[in-house]
Write a protein that binds this DNA or RNA. Structure first.
Lengths: 217, 217
DNA sequence: TATTATACCGAACTGATGTTCTTTGTCAAT
DNA sequence: ATTGACAAAGAACATCAGTTCGGTATAATA
């Protein structure tokens, strides 16, 4: 990425910071007069002039002749993210190991988790939900206590993906890496120190695909 | 969370969708006239009226008497996120196992990683950087090949946190959970199946703290 | 049919907002 | 001192944008 060809002055830098703070605080860009007041610029024409310089320096972009048209390039845009409903907990007991949330839980979640759009691919928003891992029962899937697991319903099956697998004969749902082999599934724990095993495709249902895992520390 | 007390009509829903799309596309809210044109509303006063209804229904919020003051509540705001510079790779060889990026790498990164602000706590933006894990050398820290590790310089030491630890006698830097015990560090692999071990505090340097780990699948 | 209430349209209004232009101030070279 | 080049201030302007309001159409009610 190219560095600014033009050095910017201290007051221009201060103005840039103000615009950035304004966007972060208000969620939308400021007007020229907001900038003038907030960054203590002496006149509107100076605001306009500084904006030209900041644009040349590659720090901002803006739509001319349109209100609140300025944006700081280093800031993410709303379209870079999605919000995913938090719908419950992955526990180690089989019955509710990996819950499938109902419509109500999806619409009225306990919480909303912001996730970078680049992490969830082309998934439809309404197919995504988040679960919190509890205990170390998912350690074979390299998922730790407290991890956030973003799941996707209505996935396309992709060999080798990590899925919530319901094993009907064991009455148990866990996360495993899945490979299809004729009428059998090969279920491979994510931890390479553990051995894979096979189950009959009829006794295994793929309830959702893991889209990403997030661990706050 | 309270459900909408008022059912919204189809055209109101269409208007809501238009506003949402506008924000996602343009990064800022639309004007009333944008909405009128884009969502095919017959008059400006109808736009205003529908906005009142959508606000009552809890779908939007807006600043009155201010241009482009409407926001769709289900959309994240720019302030919900930060962008972290991508500064290299964690490999299994000791020397460059967990690199500490220089100023230039921080300012001109290969890439920018969007991260939810709630994940990075109160860290200063300039202290954060991202590394990509390569190989399974970090598996003891529950970090997988391809994982994104968000690191923080200038951290406050917190007992039991995950740190990039430089072991000078081994000439090796790895990620371990660290507990202080007098003049010794207790280094505990994240994987509970592995045993912790002790090192002298003088031969171990904490280079950075792991703030969060993100795994795309 | 007459009445009332409600939804809706469109124009006009008022303040907000980006742009332009003239004037003023500063500084260096002549 | 004079001039020219440049930066900066402030007013004026044209358009943008949210609000208001009188009027019309539609539907329900008596």
């Amino acid at each position: 990425m190219a560095r600014p060809t033009q050095r910017i002055t201290e007051s221009q830098q201060a103005m840039l910071s103000y615009i950035q703070d304004y966007i972060l605080t208000n969620g939308r860009p400021p007007t020229f007069r907001d900038i003038q007041r907030g960054a203590n610029i002496s006149s509107l024409s100076m605001v306009s002039h500084y904006l030209d310089i900041l644009r040349e320096a590659g720090e901002i972009e803006f739509n001319e002749s349109s209100s609140r048209g300025v944006w700081v390039k280093s800031l993410p845009k709303p379209g870079d993210f999605v919000r995913v409903p938090m719908c419950g907990v992955i526990t180690c007991d089989g019955e509710h190991g990996v819950p499938t949330p109902d419509a109500d839980a999806l619409r009225n979640p306990e919480d909303w988790i912001p996730v970078a759009r680049s992490l969830v691919g082309n998934a439809k928003l309404e197919d995504l939900y988040a679960l919190r891992a509890r205990g170390d029962s998912m350690i074979d899937a390299m998922i730790n206590d407290g991890d956030l697991v973003i799941m996707r319903r209505n996935f396309d099956y992709k060999d080798g993906g990590l899925y919530a697998v319901m094993l009907s004969d064991r009455n148990e749902t866990t996360l495993k890496r899945v490979f299809k082999d004729g009428k059998k599934f090969k279920l491979k724990p994510e931890n390479p120190r553990l051995e894979p095993f096979w189950v009959d495709a009829r006794s295994a249902q793929l309830q959702g695909r893991v889209v990403c895992v997030v661990r706050a520390m």
